[in-house]
Design a protein around this nucleic acid. Structure first.
Lengths: 147, 147
DNA sequence: GGGGGTAGCTTCCTGATGGGAAGTGGGCAC
DNA sequence: GTGCCCACTTCCCATCAGGAAGCTACCCCC
Protein backbone atom coordinates (compact mmCIF):
# COMPACT_ATOMS: atom_id res chain seq x y z
CA UNK A 1 0.00 0.00 0.00
CA UNK A 2 3.02 2.17 0.45
CA UNK A 3 4.87 2.05 -2.84
CA UNK A 4 2.28 1.06 -5.40
CA UNK A 5 -0.16 3.87 -5.79
CA UNK A 6 0.55 4.39 -9.48
CA UNK A 7 0.83 0.67 -10.20
CA UNK A 8 -2.44 0.03 -8.47
CA UNK A 9 -4.08 2.67 -10.53
CA UNK A 10 -2.83 0.96 -13.68
CA UNK A 11 -4.09 -2.40 -12.49
CA UNK A 12 -7.44 -0.82 -11.83
CA UNK A 13 -7.40 0.74 -15.27
CA UNK A 14 -6.78 -2.64 -16.80
CA UNK A 15 -9.65 -4.22 -14.91
CA UNK A 16 -11.85 -1.36 -16.05
CA UNK A 17 -10.65 -1.91 -19.57
CA UNK A 18 -11.77 -5.51 -19.64
CA UNK A 19 -15.16 -4.64 -18.26
CA UNK A 20 -15.36 -1.80 -20.73
CA UNK A 21 -14.60 -3.98 -23.71
CA UNK A 22 -17.09 -6.57 -22.56
CA UNK A 23 -19.88 -4.06 -22.50
CA UNK A 24 -18.71 -2.12 -25.52
CA UNK A 25 -18.07 -4.53 -28.38
CA UNK A 26 -18.36 -1.71 -30.90
CA UNK A 27 -14.94 -0.66 -29.75
CA UNK A 28 -13.62 -4.08 -30.67
CA UNK A 29 -15.28 -3.85 -34.05
CA UNK A 30 -13.70 -0.46 -34.61
CA UNK A 31 -10.31 -1.94 -33.81
CA UNK A 32 -11.00 -4.59 -36.39
CA UNK A 33 -12.07 -2.40 -39.26
CA UNK A 34 -9.41 0.19 -38.54
CA UNK A 35 -6.88 -2.13 -40.07
CA UNK A 36 -4.72 -1.44 -43.04
CA UNK A 37 -5.48 -4.57 -45.01
CA UNK A 38 -9.17 -4.42 -44.21
CA UNK A 39 -9.47 -0.91 -45.59
CA UNK A 40 -7.43 -1.80 -48.64
CA UNK A 41 -9.42 -4.94 -49.41
CA UNK A 42 -12.71 -3.12 -49.04
CA UNK A 43 -11.35 -0.32 -51.11
CA UNK A 44 -10.31 -2.71 -53.86
CA UNK A 45 -13.56 -4.64 -53.90
CA UNK A 46 -15.60 -1.45 -53.80
CA UNK A 47 -14.03 0.43 -56.63
CA UNK A 48 -13.34 -1.53 -59.73
CA UNK A 49 -9.65 -1.99 -59.52
CA UNK A 50 -8.55 -0.32 -62.71
CA UNK A 51 -4.99 -0.57 -61.54
CA UNK A 52 -3.34 2.35 -59.81
CA UNK A 53 -4.80 3.72 -56.70
CA UNK A 54 -4.45 7.35 -57.62
CA UNK A 55 -7.10 9.65 -59.02
CA UNK A 56 -10.49 8.26 -58.21
CA UNK A 57 -10.35 4.62 -59.26
CA UNK A 58 -13.97 4.63 -58.23
CA UNK A 59 -15.46 2.32 -60.77
CA UNK A 60 -18.19 0.29 -59.26
CA UNK A 61 -18.10 -2.72 -56.98
CA UNK A 62 -17.57 -6.05 -58.68
CA UNK A 63 -16.47 -9.49 -57.61
CA UNK A 64 -12.78 -10.24 -57.73
CA UNK A 65 -10.62 -13.30 -57.65
CA UNK A 66 -8.06 -14.07 -55.02
CA UNK A 67 -5.18 -13.64 -57.42
CA UNK A 68 -6.62 -10.41 -58.71
CA UNK A 69 -6.81 -8.95 -55.23
CA UNK A 70 -3.32 -10.16 -54.56
CA UNK A 71 -2.09 -8.28 -57.61
CA UNK A 72 -4.10 -5.16 -56.88
CA UNK A 73 -3.07 -4.82 -53.27
CA UNK A 74 0.57 -5.03 -54.19
CA UNK A 75 2.58 -5.97 -51.15
CA UNK A 76 0.03 -7.96 -49.22
CA UNK A 77 1.32 -11.34 -48.17
CA UNK A 78 -0.80 -14.32 -49.15
CA UNK A 79 -1.19 -15.15 -45.51
CA UNK A 80 -2.57 -11.77 -44.55
CA UNK A 81 -4.79 -11.64 -47.60
CA UNK A 82 -6.35 -14.99 -46.77
CA UNK A 83 -6.68 -14.03 -43.12
CA UNK A 84 -8.26 -10.68 -43.89
CA UNK A 85 -10.68 -12.17 -46.41
CA UNK A 86 -11.70 -14.85 -43.92
CA UNK A 87 -12.41 -12.38 -41.18
CA UNK A 88 -14.36 -10.14 -43.54
CA UNK A 89 -16.36 -13.15 -44.65
CA UNK A 90 -17.02 -14.13 -41.06
CA UNK A 91 -18.25 -10.64 -40.31
CA UNK A 92 -20.60 -10.82 -43.28
CA UNK A 93 -18.93 -8.02 -45.19
CA UNK A 94 -17.97 -10.10 -48.18
CA UNK A 95 -19.02 -13.40 -49.72
CA UNK A 96 -16.68 -16.10 -50.89
CA UNK A 97 -17.75 -18.09 -53.92
CA UNK A 98 -15.97 -21.17 -55.21
CA UNK A 99 -16.60 -22.04 -58.83
CA UNK A 100 -15.39 -25.51 -59.74
CA UNK A 101 -13.81 -24.54 -63.00
CA UNK A 102 -10.32 -25.63 -63.64
CA UNK A 103 -8.27 -24.49 -62.01
CA UNK A 104 -10.71 -23.67 -59.24
CA UNK A 105 -11.89 -20.08 -59.23
CA UNK A 106 -12.60 -18.27 -55.99
CA UNK A 107 -14.31 -14.90 -56.12
CA UNK A 108 -14.99 -12.42 -53.36
CA UNK A 109 -17.71 -9.83 -53.44
CA UNK A 110 -19.01 -7.13 -51.13
CA UNK A 111 -22.30 -7.82 -49.40
CA UNK A 112 -24.78 -5.06 -48.71
CA UNK A 113 -23.22 -4.61 -45.31
CA UNK A 114 -19.76 -4.50 -46.81
CA UNK A 115 -20.95 -1.97 -49.33
CA UNK A 116 -22.19 0.32 -46.60
CA UNK A 117 -18.82 0.17 -44.89
CA UNK A 118 -17.12 0.70 -48.19
CA UNK A 119 -18.71 4.11 -48.45
CA UNK A 120 -17.01 5.38 -45.33
CA UNK A 121 -13.78 3.63 -46.20
CA UNK A 122 -13.83 5.39 -49.52
CA UNK A 123 -14.17 8.67 -47.66
CA UNK A 124 -11.07 7.76 -45.72
CA UNK A 125 -9.16 6.98 -48.88
CA UNK A 126 -10.37 10.19 -50.47
CA UNK A 127 -9.14 12.10 -47.45
CA UNK A 128 -5.73 10.49 -47.70
CA UNK A 129 -5.47 11.41 -51.36
CA UNK A 130 -6.70 14.96 -50.87
CA UNK A 131 -4.61 15.87 -47.88
CA UNK A 132 -1.47 13.94 -48.60
CA UNK A 133 0.42 17.02 -49.71
CA UNK A 134 -0.51 18.87 -46.54
CA UNK A 135 0.66 15.98 -44.42
CA UNK A 136 3.91 15.68 -46.32
CA UNK A 137 4.54 19.40 -45.90
CA UNK A 138 3.80 19.18 -42.19
CA UNK A 139 6.21 16.32 -41.80
CA UNK A 140 8.96 18.25 -43.46
CA UNK A 141 8.38 21.25 -41.26
CA UNK A 142 8.34 19.07 -38.19
CA UNK A 143 11.49 17.22 -39.10
CA UNK A 144 13.39 20.37 -39.92
CA UNK A 145 12.36 22.01 -36.68
CA UNK A 146 13.46 19.11 -34.58
CA UNK A 147 16.66 18.87 -36.62
CA UNK B 1 13.90 -20.60 -65.86
CA UNK B 2 12.59 -24.08 -65.53
CA UNK B 3 11.19 -24.37 -62.03
CA UNK B 4 10.55 -20.81 -60.89
CA UNK B 5 7.72 -19.35 -62.89
CA UNK B 6 5.52 -18.66 -59.89
CA UNK B 7 8.40 -17.51 -57.72
CA UNK B 8 9.56 -15.16 -60.40
CA UNK B 9 6.14 -13.66 -60.65
CA UNK B 10 6.21 -13.00 -56.92
CA UNK B 11 9.60 -11.35 -57.15
CA UNK B 12 8.31 -9.20 -59.96
CA UNK B 13 5.26 -8.32 -57.92
CA UNK B 14 7.50 -7.19 -55.10
CA UNK B 15 9.56 -4.98 -57.37
CA UNK B 16 6.38 -3.50 -58.72
CA UNK B 17 5.20 -2.93 -55.20
CA UNK B 18 8.20 -0.82 -54.30
CA UNK B 19 7.84 1.29 -57.42
CA UNK B 20 4.13 1.53 -56.71
CA UNK B 21 4.58 2.78 -53.18
CA UNK B 22 7.22 5.26 -54.28
CA UNK B 23 4.86 6.89 -56.73
CA UNK B 24 1.76 6.49 -54.62
CA UNK B 25 2.46 7.85 -51.14
CA UNK B 26 -1.24 8.26 -50.50
CA UNK B 27 -1.31 4.52 -50.04
CA UNK B 28 1.26 4.85 -47.28
CA UNK B 29 -0.77 7.57 -45.66
CA UNK B 30 -3.84 5.37 -45.78
CA UNK B 31 -1.91 2.61 -44.09
CA UNK B 32 -0.98 5.07 -41.42
CA UNK B 33 -4.40 6.46 -40.63
CA UNK B 34 -6.05 3.06 -40.87
CA UNK B 35 -4.62 2.24 -37.49
CA UNK B 36 -6.54 1.32 -34.41
CA UNK B 37 -4.92 3.78 -32.03
CA UNK B 38 -4.95 6.59 -34.56
CA UNK B 39 -8.69 6.28 -35.06
CA UNK B 40 -9.29 6.04 -31.36
CA UNK B 41 -7.16 9.05 -30.51
CA UNK B 42 -8.78 11.16 -33.20
CA UNK B 43 -12.11 9.93 -32.06
CA UNK B 44 -11.38 10.91 -28.49
CA UNK B 45 -10.00 14.34 -29.31
CA UNK B 46 -12.84 15.03 -31.71
CA UNK B 47 -15.77 14.22 -29.55
CA UNK B 48 -15.60 15.51 -26.05
CA UNK B 49 -14.83 12.39 -24.11
CA UNK B 50 -17.79 12.26 -21.83
CA UNK B 51 -16.72 8.79 -20.79
CA UNK B 52 -18.14 5.71 -22.46
CA UNK B 53 -17.85 5.26 -26.13
CA UNK B 54 -21.40 4.19 -26.68
CA UNK B 55 -24.28 6.33 -27.87
CA UNK B 56 -22.94 9.36 -29.65
CA UNK B 57 -20.32 10.81 -27.31
CA UNK B 58 -20.16 13.51 -29.94
CA UNK B 59 -19.62 16.57 -27.86
CA UNK B 60 -17.32 18.93 -29.58
CA UNK B 61 -13.58 18.87 -30.03
CA UNK B 62 -11.53 20.16 -27.15
CA UNK B 63 -7.93 19.86 -25.98
CA UNK B 64 -7.09 16.99 -23.73
CA UNK B 65 -4.23 16.06 -21.45
CA UNK B 66 -2.06 13.04 -21.84
CA UNK B 67 -3.44 11.40 -18.74
CA UNK B 68 -6.97 12.15 -19.82
CA UNK B 69 -6.44 10.42 -23.15
CA UNK B 70 -4.81 7.55 -21.38
CA UNK B 71 -7.87 7.13 -19.21
CA UNK B 72 -10.32 7.59 -22.03
CA UNK B 73 -8.70 5.11 -24.39
CA UNK B 74 -8.68 2.44 -21.74
CA UNK B 75 -6.20 -0.21 -22.65
CA UNK B 76 -3.72 1.83 -24.61
CA UNK B 77 -0.18 1.38 -23.41
CA UNK B 78 1.71 4.52 -22.52
CA UNK B 79 4.23 3.67 -25.17
CA UNK B 80 1.69 3.41 -27.97
CA UNK B 81 -0.14 6.51 -26.82
CA UNK B 82 3.04 8.56 -26.92
CA UNK B 83 4.04 7.06 -30.24
CA UNK B 84 0.65 7.68 -31.81
CA UNK B 85 0.47 11.23 -30.53
CA UNK B 86 3.94 11.98 -31.87
CA UNK B 87 3.16 10.70 -35.31
CA UNK B 88 -0.11 12.61 -35.40
CA UNK B 89 1.75 15.74 -34.34
CA UNK B 90 4.36 15.17 -37.02
CA UNK B 91 1.64 14.83 -39.63
CA UNK B 92 0.11 18.08 -38.49
CA UNK B 93 -3.13 16.53 -37.31
CA UNK B 94 -2.79 17.56 -33.70
CA UNK B 95 -0.82 20.12 -31.74
CA UNK B 96 1.08 19.47 -28.56
CA UNK B 97 1.19 22.23 -26.00
CA UNK B 98 3.30 22.18 -22.88
CA UNK B 99 2.22 24.47 -20.09
CA UNK B 100 4.86 24.86 -17.40
CA UNK B 101 2.51 24.60 -14.51
CA UNK B 102 3.38 22.22 -11.79
CA UNK B 103 3.31 19.45 -12.42
CA UNK B 104 3.85 20.12 -16.10
CA UNK B 105 0.68 19.98 -18.18
CA UNK B 106 0.69 18.71 -21.75
CA UNK B 107 -2.39 19.16 -23.86
CA UNK B 108 -3.18 17.83 -27.31
CA UNK B 109 -5.67 19.38 -29.67
CA UNK B 110 -6.90 18.71 -33.18
CA UNK B 111 -5.71 21.06 -35.89
CA UNK B 112 -7.92 22.03 -38.82
CA UNK B 113 -6.46 19.17 -40.78
CA UNK B 114 -7.03 16.77 -37.92
CA UNK B 115 -10.57 18.01 -37.62
CA UNK B 116 -11.26 17.24 -41.25
CA UNK B 117 -9.98 13.71 -40.80
CA UNK B 118 -11.98 13.39 -37.63
CA UNK B 119 -15.18 13.79 -39.61
CA UNK B 120 -14.53 10.66 -41.62
CA UNK B 121 -13.22 8.79 -38.63
CA UNK B 122 -16.40 9.62 -36.82
CA UNK B 123 -18.31 8.14 -39.73
CA UNK B 124 -16.30 4.96 -39.30
CA UNK B 125 -17.07 4.85 -35.61
CA UNK B 126 -20.72 5.51 -36.29
CA UNK B 127 -20.75 2.63 -38.75
CA UNK B 128 -19.23 0.32 -36.17
CA UNK B 129 -21.83 1.29 -33.63
CA UNK B 130 -24.72 1.02 -36.05
CA UNK B 131 -23.84 -2.29 -37.64
CA UNK B 132 -22.30 -4.08 -34.72
CA UNK B 133 -25.34 -6.22 -34.16
CA UNK B 134 -25.39 -7.31 -37.80
CA UNK B 135 -21.75 -8.25 -37.65
CA UNK B 136 -22.19 -10.17 -34.45
CA UNK B 137 -25.12 -12.06 -35.94
CA UNK B 138 -23.12 -12.86 -39.06
CA UNK B 139 -20.28 -14.19 -36.97
CA UNK B 140 -22.55 -16.48 -35.08
CA UNK B 141 -24.05 -17.83 -38.27
CA UNK B 142 -20.62 -18.34 -39.75
CA UNK B 143 -19.25 -20.10 -36.69
CA UNK B 144 -22.24 -22.41 -36.41
CA UNK B 145 -22.07 -23.36 -40.04
CA UNK B 146 -18.42 -24.24 -39.91
CA UNK B 147 -18.99 -26.12 -36.67
C1' DG C 1 0.72 -42.22 -67.86
C1' DG C 2 3.77 -39.05 -65.82
C1' DG C 3 6.07 -34.47 -65.65
C1' DG C 4 4.91 -29.87 -65.37
C1' DG C 5 1.83 -25.99 -64.66
C1' DT C 6 -1.81 -23.15 -62.22
C1' DA C 7 -5.09 -21.32 -58.39
C1' DG C 8 -5.66 -20.93 -53.84
C1' DC C 9 -4.43 -21.73 -49.85
C1' DT C 10 -1.47 -23.60 -45.37
C1' DT C 11 2.68 -24.17 -42.67
C1' DC C 12 7.07 -23.00 -40.86
C1' DC C 13 10.55 -19.86 -39.53
C1' DT C 14 12.21 -15.51 -38.36
C1' DG C 15 12.38 -10.58 -37.71
C1' DA C 16 9.49 -6.72 -36.35
C1' DT C 17 6.20 -4.88 -33.24
C1' DG C 18 3.16 -3.99 -29.40
C1' DG C 19 2.27 -4.44 -24.36
C1' DG C 20 3.84 -4.49 -19.28
C1' DA C 21 6.40 -2.68 -16.03
C1' DA C 22 9.99 -0.28 -14.14
C1' DG C 23 12.87 3.93 -14.39
C1' DT C 24 13.52 9.30 -15.06
C1' DG C 25 13.35 14.33 -13.92
C1' DG C 26 11.84 18.29 -11.71
C1' DG C 27 9.15 20.55 -8.47
C1' DC C 28 6.33 20.72 -4.26
C1' DA C 29 3.76 18.94 -0.14
C1' DC C 30 4.71 16.84 4.22
C1' DG D 1 14.85 15.00 3.05
C1' DT D 2 11.47 11.72 1.74
C1' DG D 3 8.42 10.68 -1.41
C1' DC D 4 4.85 11.55 -4.89
C1' DC D 5 2.93 13.22 -9.31
C1' DC D 6 2.93 13.99 -14.56
C1' DA D 7 4.50 12.87 -18.76
C1' DC D 8 7.19 10.33 -20.66
C1' DT D 9 11.33 6.68 -21.89
C1' DT D 10 13.54 2.20 -21.70
C1' DC D 11 13.95 -2.61 -21.37
C1' DC D 12 12.20 -7.15 -21.89
C1' DC D 13 9.34 -10.46 -23.68
C1' DA D 14 5.17 -12.44 -26.00
C1' DT D 15 2.74 -12.07 -30.01
C1' DC D 16 2.27 -11.20 -34.79
C1' DA D 17 3.22 -10.19 -39.65
C1' DG D 18 5.99 -11.30 -43.75
C1' DG D 19 8.67 -14.56 -46.91
C1' DA D 20 9.17 -18.75 -48.76
C1' DA D 21 8.22 -23.24 -49.44
C1' DG D 22 4.89 -26.98 -49.52
C1' DC D 23 0.34 -28.90 -50.63
C1' DT D 24 -3.90 -30.29 -53.17
C1' DA D 25 -6.66 -30.90 -57.01
C1' DC D 26 -7.05 -30.61 -61.57
C1' DC D 27 -5.63 -30.46 -66.65
C1' DC D 28 -2.54 -30.35 -70.67
C1' DC D 29 1.11 -32.12 -73.39
C1' DC D 30 3.90 -35.50 -75.05
Amino acid sequence: MATTTAAQKRAQAKADYDAFLAQCPSRKLLDRIADKWVTLVLSALGSDGSHRFGADCAGEPRPMRYSELSRLLAGVSQKMLTQTLRSLERDGLITRTVTPTVPVTVTYELTGLGLSLHDTVRALKAWAETHMDDVLANRETYDNHAE
